[in-house]
Design a binder for these strands. Structure first.
Lengths: 186, 186
DNA sequence: GTCTATATTAAGATAGAC
DNA sequence: GTCTATCTTAATATAGAC
């Protein structure tokens, strides 16, 4: 058997980059083929279910990224504040200083397979829980911590839109800078 | 000359509804025809430039809606707080309690004509200016007012995403409820 | 001004060679 | 496992009747 040009993780990663920029409907197989360096037929070999299977693999891959770069670091050894600072740094890279959209936004538009919405919901739920937990650990009540987590998530997603539409990174970067206080100062 | 089934305003309104749900790439002429009740050929008669012209008309129409339902009410006669409460009510209807996405989000993805991004940027700039002005009028410094306006916009856009992905209106509704304090309490 | 019918291009998807 | 070639369907767009 011939060896694959890209492993599943690299392949899903390229797919995520395409879906986050163009959305589900805008991510044609031609664009996905170009982004991955594979021909359309090769994509069908890797994902017999076609575009729907590719987008689900992309969603799963992003959920894994959240696991590694948000959930795990937030459950680490350092002080809560340092852990949040670390996560903010990782988020800054993932969103390229606010120049790249969030898949939770992009892929939650109408269109795509029904399970996709469930996958996005699950990923966002996990993210909210991770933020809530670090806020509780920082001394907040459950209610207050939940509220801070929701505000933080909304601020991240909202500032990404402002940064994208106005072409200015400062909105997103400022939100990241506010994260430590928001999540760890009761 | 035969009389049009829909005037330009009604037509643009249906187009906006389609674009906000499906984005630019997902809004095929078939979907636009279904949403407007016109055949594709009739859409080309009204908009010879095709889909690109339709999306620009939609963007212009939304900018007009902002003018009428945000800028003008915020420059009204009542107290600043009452004016913001009024705008919050209008926003609640426009976003259907947080169940419908914002075109500034949906249409700012990759794809579509280049002028579209300029139109969205201009609409968002106007919205920010209107929010900033009411905050200044409420006694804030220019710097503080600008900051509050940006935070308010990001909170609106971000909470719309949370509400959409998690299927819960409360995120968006809570943001609307916080608007009067955010924009009029120094 | 809107329609039916049709042309043209791109999208999603498969077959079979290497 | 990836490719070229091809099929089928849907998309954008136009022609011409009413």
């Amino acid at each position: 058997m011939a060896t694959a040009r890209l492993n599943d993780s690299e392949l899903a990663d390229r797919a995520v980059e395409t879906f986050r920029m163009y959305g589900y409907e805008g991510s044609s197989l031609n664009r996905l083929a170009e982004a991955t360096g594979l021909e359309k037929a090769s994509l069908y070999y890797r994902y017999p279910g076609g575009k729907d299977q590719i987008v689900m693999a992309a969603a799963t891959h992003v959920a894994g990224w959240f696991e590694q770069n948000i959930f795990l670091p937030l459950a680490g050894e350092q002080s809560p504040r340092r852990r949040v600072q670390n996560v903010a740094r990782l988020l800054r890279r993932f969103y390229a200083d606010g120049t790249k959209p969030c898949v939770l936004d992009t892929l939650s538009l109408q269109g795509g397979p029904p399970q996709l919405q469930a996958a996005l919901q699950s990923a966002l739920d996990g993210w909210l829980a991770a933020f809530t937990n670090i806020a509780i650990e920082s001394g907040m009540t459950r209610t207050q911590a939940l509220r801070r987590a929701e505000d933080a998530l909304a601020a991240i997603e909202g500032s990404l839109i402002l940064s994208r539409v106005l072409g200015q990174k400062r909105f997103f970067l400022r939100t990241l800078a506010s994260l430590p206080d928001l999540l760890t100062e009761p």
